[in-house]
Simulated scan of single mutants.
Amino acid sequence: MLFVLHRTYFPEGTQGILLYNGQLICYTIELPWIQNKRNISCVPEGLYNLQKRYSPKFKDHLYLKNVMGRSLILIHPANDAKRELEGCIAPVSYHTGIGKGNSSRKAFYKLTSLVLPALAKNTKVQLRITSSLSYFRSR
């Protein structure tokens, strides 16, 4: 199972669209690209395995495994990247500004309703992160 996140970078934040089998699942928000610096940058483009994780703060959420130079990169609900993220990815229903969105919890549940059952069946679930420019060049 492969999800693809196409990003667009801005100095204030990173916007994305998350697809599965070519279909829009949700939009995403992240911190801006700042050379993969911990807690202040989005993660590098690449292919990551997803895993289910639980914490008291976020309950069930998703974890990106083996992010180079980083740890605990999560996918969890948030509507404002600068206020609520420390390098993680937040699904949102709509973009409302750079690094901002709304109805994150709704988008998060839409995503996890696909991912969590697959993980429960031991299906490999991956996330490919790429830039929008790469996406449009390959079409």
Rank of each mutant, 00 (worst) to 15 (best):
E86A: 15
S132M: 14
S93W: 06
L2H: 07
V43I: 14
I25Q: 09
R105A: 06
P91I: 05
V92H: 07
H6K: 15
K65T: 09
F58K: 04
R83Q: 15
G69R: 01
V92Y: 00
L116A: 01
Y54G: 06
V43D: 04
K121W: 01
S103E: 14
L85V: 08
K59E: 14
G97A: 13
W33Y: 12
P32W: 07
L62I: 10
R7N: 03
K65F: 01
Y20R: 14
E84S: 06
H6M: 04
K100L: 11
V92S: 03
L114Y: 14
R137N: 13
G16A: 03
P77G: 05
P32C: 07
H76V: 03
G69W: 07
G87R: 04
A90Y: 05
T112N: 12
F136Q: 14
G46L: 10
Y109S: 13
L85D: 08
L64I: 02
T112A: 07
G69N: 11
Y20Q: 13
G69D: 03
S132C: 11
H76Q: 13
D80N: 15
K106T: 15
N122S: 14
P77M: 08
G97F: 00
G97T: 01
Y9F: 14
L24S: 05
F58I: 01
H95Y: 04
P44V: 11
S138A: 15
T8K: 12
G16W: 02
P117C: 09
I34P: 00
P56V: 01
L85I: 03
R7F: 09
Y54N: 13
Y63M: 08
A78V: 07
L18R: 06
E84D: 12
K100G: 00
Y20W: 14
L111H: 03
I29Q: 00
E86P: 00
P91L: 06
K124G: 05
S41Q: 04
Q51L: 11
S131T: 15
A107I: 01
M1V: 11
I40P: 06
G87W: 08
S55R: 09
I40K: 09
Q35C: 08
R137I: 14
M1E: 11
S138C: 06
W33H: 05
L18I: 07
N21H: 12
Y54H: 11
S132L: 15
L5I: 01
G69Y: 03
R7I: 05
I73A: 00
S71Y: 11
C88G: 08
A107H: 03
I73V: 15
I98N: 02
V115S: 06
F108M: 12
S134P: 00
T28C: 02
Y9L: 15
E84W: 03
L50Y: 09
K100A: 00
